[in-house]
Computed example of a mutant assay.
Amino acid sequence: METITNKEVNVHLDKETGTLCLTRLLAGTMVFLYDSQGELRGKHQFALPSLTITIPRYGTYVLVMSHPNCQPEVRRVVYAGI
């Protein structure tokens, strides 16, 4: 039996615009963006082929990617000035 996973997700941050682009997630994955204080800053459902999220301001964020058929995937994103 093949294991279903979101570990192959590709996360790219455009530091000039504060745009976060996610690809290679399973369709239907819920993506939650939290700031460093643990406040929810965004909730999105991934649909193929990609998801784009605008980060509101500089700081450290945590992305939680949750799909009912696999373990949650968590990534840290640092949005800092150039």
Rank of each mutant, 00 (worst) to 15 (best):
T17K: 05
P49C: 01
G18P: 14
L25A: 06
T3I: 13
L25D: 02
R76G: 02
N69K: 03
C70Q: 08
S36C: 07
L13E: 04
H12M: 04
L48Q: 15
V31D: 07
L25S: 01
V62R: 06
L48N: 13
M1P: 05
K7S: 15
L26F: 00
S50N: 08
S36T: 03
E73K: 09
H67F: 11
E8I: 11
K15V: 10
C21W: 01
C70I: 04
G28P: 13
Y34L: 15
T23A: 11
R57E: 07
V64M: 12
L63Y: 00
P56H: 03
L20T: 04
I4K: 11
A47N: 10
M30W: 08
G42F: 04
P49W: 03
Q71S: 14
T5Y: 12
H44P: 10
L13Y: 14
M30H: 15
I4S: 10
T17N: 13
G42W: 07
S50E: 14
T3F: 13
H12G: 07
H12I: 14
Q71N: 05
K15M: 09
L20P: 00
L25Q: 06
G42I: 01
L51A: 06
T3E: 14
L25I: 04
V64E: 10
Q37G: 05
E39G: 12
T29D: 05
E73S: 10
L51D: 06
L13H: 10
E2K: 12
R76I: 11
K7P: 00
T52S: 13
Y61W: 02
V77W: 00
Y79L: 02
K15D: 12
P68G: 06
L33Q: 00
Q37I: 13
E16R: 15
P49E: 13
V11H: 00
C21L: 12
T19K: 15
E16Q: 14
T3N: 12
A27W: 03
N10W: 02
N69V: 06
E73R: 03
D35K: 15
F32I: 04
V78F: 02
E16Y: 02
M1G: 12
T5N: 04
L33H: 00
T54I: 06
S66R: 08
K15E: 07
T60M: 14
L63W: 00
L13R: 09
L20A: 10
L13S: 08
T19M: 05
V64Q: 11
K7C: 08
A27G: 05
P56E: 06
I55T: 07
H12W: 02
H67R: 02
H44N: 06
V64F: 03
K7G: 11
D35E: 11
K7V: 07
G28C: 13
F46L: 02
G18E: 05
E2R: 10
E16C: 01
N6H: 12
Y79P: 12
Y58M: 03
R75C: 10
V74F: 07
C21G: 04
L25G: 06
S36E: 09
Y61M: 05
T19R: 10
D14R: 03
I53S: 04
N69Y: 10
F32N: 04
Y58S: 01
V62D: 00
M30D: 13
S66C: 06
